[in-house]
Amino acid sequence: MSEPATRIRVVLFDLDGTLADTAPDLANALNHTLRGHGREPLPLEAIRPHVSHGGIALIRFGFGIGADHPQFEIYRRDLLDFYLANIARETRLFDGMERVLDTLEGEGIAWGVVTNKPAWLTDPLMRALGLDRRAACIVSGDTLRYSKPRPEPILHGCALAGASPGECLYVGDAERDIEAGRRAGTATLVALFGYLGEGDEPARWGGDGLLNHPAELLDWLGL
Rank of each mutant, 00 (worst) to 15 (best):
E3H: 14
A5S: 15
L12P: 08
D16Y: 11
T18M: 00
L19G: 02
N28M: 13
L30V: 10
G36E: 02
E40S: 15
L42S: 04
A46M: 13
V51H: 03
I56R: 15
R60N: 08
A67C: 13
D68H: 13
R77F: 09
D78M: 05
L79Q: 04
D81L: 14
I87H: 14
A88N: 04
R92P: 11
E98W: 11
R99Y: 04
G108H: 00
I109L: 00
G112P: 07
V113N: 09
T115V: 06
P124F: 09
R127P: 00
L129T: 07
C137V: 13
C137N: 09
G141A: 02
D142A: 07
D142H: 01
K148F: 10
P151H: 00
L155A: 03
H156Q: 10
H156N: 09
C158W: 09
A161K: 11
V171A: 10
E175M: 14
E179G: 08
A180S: 14
T186A: 05
A187Q: 13
L189E: 05
V190A: 12
Y195K: 10
L196K: 10
G199W: 05
D200H: 07
E201G: 05
D208H: 08
L210N: 00
L211K: 08
H213R: 15
E216N: 08
W220M: 08
G222H: 08
